[in-house]
Amino acid sequence: MKPRLFAALLGAAIACTPFAAHAHRAWMVPSATVLSGEDVWISIDAAASNTLFFADHNPLRLDNLVVHAPDGAQATPQNLLRGRYRCTFDIELAQSGTYRIVNATRGANARYMLNGEEQRWRGQLSELQAALPSGATDVRVSENFNRVETFVTRGAPTEIQPVNEGLELAPITHPNDLVTEEAARFRFLLDGQPAANLEVTLAPGGQRYRNDTGEFTVTTDAQGIATVNWPSAGMWWINASVRDLPSDTAGATRSANYSGVLEVLP
């Protein structure tokens, strides 16, 4: 949709308000991240939950699941099952190197007033025009880009190329080379540019068995680099988000969210 057309549709009543971030945490947890041998598979649990990493809310919608193999081709997820609380699927690691498992979604939220009541809409931005009933006023639109991913490596790690879209983690320390005794450095990119001064949340799994969350935040420097000192080994959830970005679509805002799962070994 062309920005001008969209602006004309929404008229002067448009207001730009960001929508609440997803309340639950999205994750894909692999059965292992550092593997050796030849006939090697991993299994992944994918869900959105509050308690990391316990499937207690909803399965992750995997409509946009892509498994990037080390050679750049796409591998096929197998044995996909959608359960009440989580999805599971397997990946055969046929190649040596690093697999990047991604569920990246683009969408839009809209709120508008119709006959004195607030209505909500969710879908693709291109569908909004058709979806809005005549008489809708106070239309507020937010585009969102959401990336959920994890990494696994068979044999020696291979380089991870940035996708330059949305908010992403561009590793300096390889995500499958994390140990408690060494600090890790990750660059965050927003549409391919360093995301400076970005607050990054780190939360350890196994939360049910602790009274404190164990979470902490770090802030990226001017080059978009976050330095993380791991307090403990285990599966970690790494998350960052940006909101109220200008959008290509006139009158709308844009948000981007990143959620990764990283394994830190002792």
Partner: peptide, 22 residues
């Protein structure tokens, strides 16, 4: 059989990270 014994090489985590995986 089938080099299955190599599956657990990465359990020697320090070795695997320092030199084993290469």
């Amino acid at each position: 059989r089938n080099n299955e014994g190599q599956t657990w090489l990465s359990d020697m985590r320090t070795w695997w990270r320092k030199i084993g995986r290469e």
